[in-house]
Design a binder for these strands. Structure first.
Lengths: 338, 338
DNA sequence: TTCTGGCACTCACCACCGCTGAGTGCCAGC
DNA sequence: GCTGGCACTCAGCGGTGGTGAGTGCCAGAA
């Protein structure tokens, strides 16, 4: 177990390193933080911290740098979440309130997060599977070809073509539309399958094929379409990373381009509360020198999607966490209102 | 006027420089391209080309590098468009044909372009204003609240809420829906306003307010919604740019984040045929060291949107132009089929 | 005229060198 | 358990000299 003072030293190292981006030495530490001990003592503490793996030396005769493990301890035990100032919060709210539709909300959120944290922001669109149905629309484009449009409570619209085995009459389409809506409007997606299960039975034999096709497409859209969209922004902030550019930035950009990777990244995070993944804690190799701070957001009490930022492990954790949490909160409010 | 051989020398310089990324000298030139003259002669030609501003020296006693003006001449006069191999074309078509909806088409196109050209790809969503109407749907969400859904021939869906001055009956809604569709389906957006102008007159006085509200929203969607979306990809390719990283890459990433800039970039391009903007020809400062190759694509004969790539001025123009043209062509086909 | 070979010159790049200073580990003493 | 002192390490920096690719110019050949 580390003594109180050693933790204090670790905290000081993290803070200084985040600020200066340079390895921090014992002398500088004692000067900038009033630990009331001498550099020599701090050196002993540092040796102990290094022994335990919380800090490391880039090379002999250089200062110390926190390791992933060091940041982890810092985040878990030593640092809080820095709340935003009232002015900042008002600004956020104002900026988000001006949104006109879902795309706009997500777009603004990404820009906001990127700007506040000066890092790369990632915002997931509200997930279909946790939303509820606002409306289902069915249009006959051709005798045996329908278009299915699904509108969610978060304002998202999904459309799919349905090719029916045979032609289906206008009245049947209208009937199906009405029945579908009366059953599923206001329901959560997860409930939908059992609610529509017996629908074909209500129709003439002639139409059952078409009805089944429509239902199949609908369920497919709900279930299979876990291909959740997301938006990223602030990639230009990557250029602030370090001096050893191409090597660091390249794999990160590559990782950010793969939606699958990002979705998994956000998905891994625990459902409630904020998640911080530091360096090698990230499964994806390209992100081994970055940290990811993510949190769920939702229109009600419950999270419908996640958002977060990706930045260097050497980031201002309290500030970043504060910004992420605040933004998530306001986005939730905006979604609930619309 | 430059002699034939000098043009030949310029072409050789461009080709070598694009290949090696290093200033090219007179000796290397004569060895790699069989210009059947001596290095000394080439040196004289180079001096002339430099005089005219087509090439430049990074510093004395270094080889020559093409200037923007040099690339321009190369593109206009010296290089053709390199067609893709049959195998590549089949691969493209196969990849795009697997698309399931518009988002998917655009997403695949971006990835394809980025991969083929190893540069940053930009694809604009088919523009609303040049599309035709496939269907208009009208849903009563509440007595005086309708949802208007507009579906375009390119598969894009736009939805808007309509708040009516007073309640409107289900039958009136159905009537309006039917009349609207019979008038506008298959029409180009530009035609719609005059086609629906007199619609309110066909309704009872009670409903005219609501009808007008719907029409107003519809027209607004058509006209005002020039907020065109686009998708970019392949930003990781920026890391291949040069060694002088942060300075080059930063402004490019920043420019790419601003949709407005990109839309303007694509918008500036001539409507038909391929456009190449080289270095300082790009209005946006951040893109002064990049070239943009863009071309329109469309489902019919006519362009509905544009796509292109952004890369270093030192790019393989013939190859890039070939890839861009081929992809645009196939995307057009796919859109026409769906 | 146009091209060529020769020659002197320039200069970026690299490897090497030695210095400096921040930072360390260790130890004896308070 | 803390502190001051001391010897040691080593990245970074600036200066130095050599190397070679590349140039411009010129006189002579085609």
């Amino acid at each position: 177990m580390l003594s109180e003072r050693r933790l204090e030293v670790l905290r000081a190292i993290v803070q200084d390193y985040v600020g200066t981006e340079e390895p921090v030495g014992s002398k500088a530490l004692t000067e900038r933080h009033n630990l009331r001990v001498s550099p020599a003592t701090v050196r002993n503490d540092m040796a102990a911290l290094e022994e335990e793996g919380y800090i490391a030396q880039p090379h002999t005769s250089a200062g110390r740098v926190p390791t992933d493990k060091g940041y982890r301890l810092f985040v878990d035990k030593l640092a809080g979440v820095k709340p935003l100032s009232a002015a900042e919060r008002r600004a956020i709210q104002g900026f988000l309130e001006a949104s006109v539709d879902l795309d706009d909300v997500v777009g603004r959120t990404v820009r906001l997060l990127a700007q506040l944290t000066r890092q790369v922001a990632v915002v997931q669109y509200p997930s279909l599977t946790r939303s509820t149905v606002r409306h289902v629309e069915l249009l006959a484009l051709a005798p045996a070809r329908l278009m299915l449009v699904l509108i969610t409570d978060t304002g998202r619209v999904e459309q799919r073509m349905v090719d029916c085995p045979g032609p289906i009459g206008e009245t049947s389409v209208a009937d199906l539309r009405a029945r579908l809506n009366s059953r599923v409007v206001g329901q959560r997606f997860a409930e939908v399958p059992q609610l529509v299960q017996d629908l074909p039975e209500a129709f003439d034999l002639d139409d059952r094929g078409a009805v089944s096709a429509v239902l199949a497409t609908l369920l497919e859209t709900l279930v299979e379409d876990t291909e959740e969209r997301l938006m990223i922004g602030g990639t230009a902030n990557l250029t602030r990373f370090g001096h050893d550019f191409p090597l660091t930035i390249r794999p990160v950009l590559e990782a950010l381009e793969e939606q699958v990777v990002l979705l998994k990244l956000l998905g891994e995070a625990t459902d409630s509360g904020m998640t911080v993944r530091i360096g090698h804690e990230n499964a994806h190799e390209g992100l081994n020198s970055t940290s990811v701070v993510s949190v769920g957001y939702g229109s009600g009490g419950e999270a419908v999607a996640k958002l977060g930022v990706v930045g260097p492990t050497r980031m201002d954790y309290p500030g970043t966490m504060g910004a992420v949490r605040a933004v998530a909160r306001y986005v939730g409010q905006i979604l609930a209102e619309s």
